[in-house]
Structure formats: C-alpha cells, structure tokens
Design a binder for these strands. Structure first.
Lengths: 187, 187, 187, 187
DNA sequence: AATGAATGAGCTTTCATTCAT
DNA sequence: AATGAATGAAAGCTCATTCAT
C-alpha cells in the first residue's frame, strides 16, 4: 500500500492522487486502510517519507559497499537515480519532495520527517566516505560536498521533469566533484 | 488572480489549493473566473508558470544590470531568492516546480511551458554573462555553470523547505562558482 | 439562432443544450441574445416551438398541393419526416416534443404553444383533405384519422430513436389509413 | 432513489432535474449516491429505464392475466396509462422517453436499453395474445398491431401533455384495433 | 481484526442571466 | 441597438473519513 502510494505521489504529487486510486492500485480493501493508518492520508504520507528515506539509505549503503572512493559511489548513486527516472517514463521524482512541496502549515510532522531523511542521507554518505578516504578528506569538506550533492539530485530530478531527459540528474555527479574540489582547495 | 494562485500554489502545491480559496484570496467572484480562463484551473496553472517565468526573467535582468561580473549577479540572484523565501515564512517555493511536480501524463502544455521558462532563464543568464565577461569565459562553460545553478536553486528551494532555513538556497552561489571554475580548468 | 437552437434541442432536449452552445453554433454574439429574447431561454423555446409549428404547417401545404388524395399527402408527409430523421443521423426528433417533455409546471405558455401547433396541423390537414376528397369523407372521420396520424408521427419519432431506423415513423402512414378506414366503416 | 428519479425525469426530463433534487426527494444523502451508482447520473438513467421497462412488463402481465382477449388487455393497459397520467396531474410521461429524447451521441447504452425495453414489451404482448387467441390471429399481424400500439401509447403520452387530457392516450386502443383489423383483412 | 456501506463537505465547472459601456 | 464582461447559483462529481457489522 505504501509502495503504491509512493509510486503515485512521485508522479502526480500528494494531493494529486486520491485515496481511492491508491487502494485500487494496491489491491487493499477499502475499509481496512484506516485500520493500519488511523490518522488517515497524513499518516500514509509520513510512512511514504520514512519508507523512501530508508530505501535511499539502503541504496547509499549499496553504492558505497562496492565503491573505491566517494566519487565512485556518487557516480553510481547518480546513475541509479537517473536510471530509475528513465524507467518510470521520466515521470517519477523524489518521494519526499512530492509530499514536502504540498505542505500545509500544520504538517510539522511531515516536514520534520523529510528533514530527518535528508540529514540521515548526508550523514551516511559522509561517514561512508570518511571511512573510504581514510583521512585524505576532511569531514567538513565532505559534509559540504554531499549537501551540494543532495541539492543537485533534488534539483536535477525537478528540471529533468521539464526536459524529459536524465541530463539534469547526471549533473549532480559533477556538482559533487567540483564542490569537493573547491572545498579541498580552500585549506 | 494569477498572483494569488501563484502564492498559494507555491506554498501548498497545485492540487493542494482549491479554486474557491484562490478566488476568495484574490477577491474575484467565483463565476467570472471562467470568463478569463475558459479552460479552467489548467489554464490558470499555465498562466502561473508563464507569469513566474517572466517574473524571474525580469529579476535576472535586474541583477545583471548592476553587476560587475557573472558571479556578482549570481550572488544577488541567490540572495534574492533566499530573502523572498524567508519573507514567505520559509513556505513558498518555485512557482513552476509547484505545478510541474503534480503533472498528469496528459499535461504536455504545462511541461513544455516549464521547460521554456527554465531554458529562457539559462539563455538570459548566459547572454548577460557573456556580455559582462567580454570573452574571458566561453559560452559553453557558462551554459554548464548556469545549468548547475538552476538545478541548485531548484534543489535548494526544496531542501530549504525541510530545514526551514535559507542555507540550502545560498549554496546555489557556491555551486555555480565551483562548476564554472571546474569548467574553466578543463581547457 | 432559432434554427440552431431547434437543431440542438431536437437532438438533445431543451435542458440538454446550453445557451453558450446555441450561440456559438449560430455565430450570434453572446451579449445580443437578450436583446432579441428579453425573457431568455424560455422565450427562445417558445420561438422554436412556433417556428417549428409554422415550418410543419408549410410542409403540410406542400405535401397536399401536389397530392391526389389525403392518403397520398399523408404518405409524402411521413416519408418527409422519415427522410429528415435519417439525414440527421437518426438523432433529431420533433422540435415541439423536445421542449414539451421538459416542462416546468409554470411553463403554461410553452404547453399552450405546443397545443396550438398540434391543433393547427390537424386543422390544416383536415381542411386540405376535405377539399381534396370533395365530401367523400366526413370531417369527423378525417379529424379522428389525423389525430391518430399526429400521435403516430410523434410516437414513431420516439421509437425510431430507440431502433435507429425509420420503420416506426413509416408506420404513421398505415395507422392513418387503418384509422380512417375504421372510421368510415363506422357509419 | 430510482423511483424518485423516475418521477422527476418523467415530469421534467433527464437534464431538467438535478441530482440534488432527486436525492432530497428520495431522502438519500448526497455522498452515498455514488456508492450505489459509481457511474453517476448516467448510470441512474439506465437504472430508471430498466426499472421502467420491468414495471411495464409486469403491468403487461397483469392486464393480460385477467383478459379474455388481446383487445381487452389493450383496453386495460391503455386505461391504466391514462389513469396514471391523470393522477400525476397530466405531467408524467413515459420514463424511457423522458431520457431517450435527451441522448448524447455517445449514450449508446441508454439507447440500447430503451430499445430492449420496447422490444420486450412487444414480445410479451404478442406472446400473451397468441396464447389467448389460440391461433385465430397470426403472430405477424399481432406483431404489427402491437408495434402500432407502442407507437400510439408513446405518441399519445406526448400529445396528452399538450392537451392536458387523456384523450390522445386513449386513442392507442383504437389504433391497435384498427391496425389489427387491417392486418387480418390482408390475408 | 477487518470491511463494504455510508457520508457531507468540497471539488471543478457550467448555467442562464445581468450589467456597464 | 448592441455587446463582451461579469455574476453567483447550481450543476455533477470526488474527496478523505466514519460507521455498522
């Protein structure tokens, strides 16, 4: 059910998709939804964000596991996002963004979950990189570079919706590399 | 009416805002809306995108008019976006993104208008910069750097929603600078 | 404008067609409608009924002009209705019926106009026939037969909508003939 | 709900009656309507037609059950329709006609349902009559006569709206009789 | 624990009409 | 005399949610 919701939200946004469609898509019976999500659609949104956060965290682990260095991992990550975007028919963006951009002032829980996911990703990528690069790069520089990378992935995902190509997403790799180089040159 | 719609879409997304609220916010009576927008909310969305595109284009002209060089203009632009975001209570993102991310497969007109806006911004920024830098920088390098800048602004706008700070937006400036430097070092 | 309205009403009913479509179909400017029909759509309905009534009256004159006897005229009339129905793609019924069946209790004017049209048709057909048949048939018998004929035309027009053939309309001829024969046998 | 809709459609036509009125008349709450009729008003129209078709079919059974011969049944049927029309304040016509005359080109389902109802009525009346008349009348003659009868009932129902009397409806009986007599004389 | 039925507020849109020019 | 602009009531429909079982 969460997966079905995520797929739909990513393509048409949180308010752009009705509960009925989510349920029919997931095959779940209509009435049982509020059994699992007593708070309704809001709670589902939260679950989609947290699930998306975990999914990307796992993907981060994967790309770093077989990587020789940070840039290698970044390259694989970027290609993975681009590939998935292409596979979706150039239609599915970031699950977190798809909900975050339709926030109601009161949705503090959603905002905070989104922020947690973003911060967790950065922390994981920094930690993995530190361990790979063995002190050759400062934590500070990596933190900056991965923040730029996150921004570039999110921005690229958006611009790619407009161009219907993966090129904007692919730029995230270069943005990471140039930001890291610039930071290293700063010492 | 377009302005009212833009403000609301930017905060809560296209489908997150009802026509009734837009009209009550803009003071326009309910019935007269379809006189000006016979195609309804879709057409309003298009108008918001085109209006937003023009608004940013003008803002680009402004920041370049009083700029000594490209980076100076980029700095002013970035600060302007960050300031506006802060003024909105950290709630209003890019008008184009707010609609683009809730596309229905059929909304080709919206996608194309969004793409036009993005491309126009890049072209304008490149042209202004070429004239400012007087041959010191290649068109190719500028094009790349401004594409990175656009991505960074859009991505920053999103991440800033999560952090409730302007920091992610401000990174766009650095991303532009490091991308340009990297491109120039490529020769 | 009246003709455009009649065409549309006949196919989709009085309330099934909006003023906007009528005006766009007739090419008339939107605002000038209430100049000619201060009472609005109701008045247009009345005009359609009266116009339809006159049109059929003229057609009655035509079919009787070149007819040797009443049945001959009835045959031509029936074929004419059937032909027009076929030409319309089996979609357009009687203009008067199309409005009469959607009466609001208050629409006494419409009902009375419809009744006038029907009565006028019968009177005309009876008078023509009396003059053709030269006393061989009583006014009373003709009146009865033409009332049956009117009913058969109207009923046939309806059933023909269901069958998408002209057969039900064509039966009006036979119904006239058998009713007249029966009446004549009554003496 | 179907009954309430039928009453209102019969008096003012399909498009002449809003969903709100049907629901308030039937006591059903607005929202639950689409639970039972997911396709909306179109589906309700179909239900009204089918229900009307069944209702008349039952009435046909009734009038034939206690009839000595076909004409007797036809007489009762005609009187029944006339009585109901009078009881409704000379306002309610055939439920099927009330929808059939406002067809949109696409409403093939409605047209087909209407045609089915009409054909079923004729078949039933023919079958009942054959069994009553025990071979004294051919199926072919009965078929013709009942087709004329159907047309006459439908046409009479319409003209009766104009006259505000039952006389046009009552003629259906005579039209049946004279058509049958004519057919029998044909042998 | 699980669910189809039921719900009314709200959705976008169309309606016939009136108004200002 | 003629008209595009303006209007709000009402249209059909979908929404997220609650209820009875």
């Amino acid at each position: 059910m969460i997966d079905a919701a995520a797929e739909l939200f990513r393509a048409r946004g949180y308010h752009g998709v009705g509960l009925a469609e989510i349920l029919s898509e997931s095959g779940a019976p209509k009435g049982s939804f509020y059994h699992h999500f007593p708070q309704g659609k809001d709670e589902l949104a939260l679950a989609v964000i947290e699930n998306g956060g975990r999914f990307v965290s796992k993907f981060i682990n994967e790309v770093f596991e077989s990587a020789r260095n940070a840039e290698d991992a970044v390259s694989r990550f970027t290609s993975g996002v681009a590939y998935a975007f292409k596979e979706s028919g150039f239609s599915q963006g970031c699950p977190i963004t798809s909900i975050l951009l339709e926030l109601t002032p009161k949705d503090e829980a959603v905002r905070s979950a989104a922020n947690n996911a973003f911060e967790t990703w950065i922390e994981k990528m920094v930690a993995h990189s530190l361990s790979l690069e063995q002190g050759k790069v400062s934590r500070q520089a990596l933190d900056k570079a991965f923040r730029a990378f996150l921004i570039a992935i999110e921005g690229g995902w958006i611009v790619a919706r407009a161009t219907q190509t993966v090129a904007p997403i692919m730029m995230a790799h270069e943005i990471f590399a140039s930001t890291l180089k610039m930071e290293l040159g700063r010492r």
